[in-house]
Design a protein around this nucleic acid. Structure first.
Lengths: 178, 178
DNA sequence: AGCTACATGTAAAGGGTTACATGATTTT
DNA sequence: AAAATCATGTAACCCTTTACATGTAGCT
């Protein structure tokens, strides 16, 4: 049940049309919650039906831009969801699965894949660090309040995740390279 | 397309019935690829249909135990899958999403959730470290070959993941506790 | 008038989750 | 004989993914 709340958050940050939301999911929001435009349009319909958001008054026809904004009920629903107990989702890591399979049938061709993934994660890490340098310099963090600090924690989650993968992939490549 | 290959790997390690597989997915395999018994039975049927596994000769009736083993075609399919290029899946981290939502509408009640998750991850990390101490002592790792080293990398993935969460949750709690 | 980009949507297929159903075996 | 447990399976629902369809606006 995270997608509707991801959309509510995005709309609170800035009222948007479906396509604008899709673009933002491809960028910053997508760093920790991805979604396609089909998912987003469907969910926008449901959220409007439930009275959590509304589209601005003009009644647009099919190919027309439709801007949504969050209603008070939507803000309340989001605040409730934040504090709601939810267990961490069970893990599903295909790459780790491949290593276990390689332990069973041999790892021919796996090193290339590990190297390719390593490069992808190195690149993503560099992108995150660049954002951090640009948006969260030390003096701004010292001056800013909790809101800024939380936004920084979101970015830090991405940085830690990529560092984790980079280190793990390097270590695993070292084993295969023996 | 990971579940069938997870099952092939598990069956190569040891031929099993559906329920036995389910138990192993609840334990070691489930640390990085979870699956319910319904998924497993469905997939066993498909794998048998495709000629990648077979159930042992006795034709069992409904409530009867049915043991599966991997056929040569299944082993080949698994080896192919290991080297097949697959991009990392887009990330979906509900907890990070909640932090971003908290930055927008305030984090009331979130600290409890963060603390609860922290405890869960601390416990999981301790479990992994205990397995490492028991199954991968330094002298065994030095003597063992690539197979053992790869199995260790699988466990190391779990350890690194939990360490990452523990550190991130502690840092985020520190922000909220200000 | 045709082309391209923008914008919203529909359809179908597959995986995952939850709840339930049924047969066989063991225990009391 | 009844109950509990083991074991396999069905059904319905939701989410995600992929491919396709349709309408609008601006430009040449």
């Amino acid at each position: 049940m995270s997608l509707p709340h991801a959309i509510l958050t995005a709309l609170l940050e800035k009222p948007s049309s479906g396509l604008e939301l899709t673009r933002r999911f491809d960028k910053s929001i997508g760093f920790f919650w991805s979604a396609t435009h089909q998912q987003i349009y469907r969910e926008l319909g449901r959220l409007e039906q439930s009275g959590l958001i509304r589209s601005c008054p003009q009644p647009p026809s099919r190919g027309q831009r439709k801007e949504y904004e969050v209603l008070p009920a939507g803000r309340t629903a989001l605040a409730d969801w934040i504090a709601d107990p939810q267990d961490p989702k069970p893990v599903r890591e295909p790459m780790v699965l491949r290593i276990r399979a390689a332990a069973a049938v041999g790892g021919r061709g796996l090193a290339e894949e590990l190297g390719r993934h390593l490069e992808l994660h190195v690149r993503q890490l560099a992108e995150y660090l660049e954002i951090e340098r640009h948006d969260f310099p030390a003096e701004r963090l010292a001056a800013g309040g909790e809101r800024l600090a939380l936004q920084h924690r979101v970015l830090r989650a991405g940085i830690g995740m990529e560092e984790y993968w980079v280190e793990w992939l390097r270590g695993t490549l070292a084993v295969l390279g023996d």
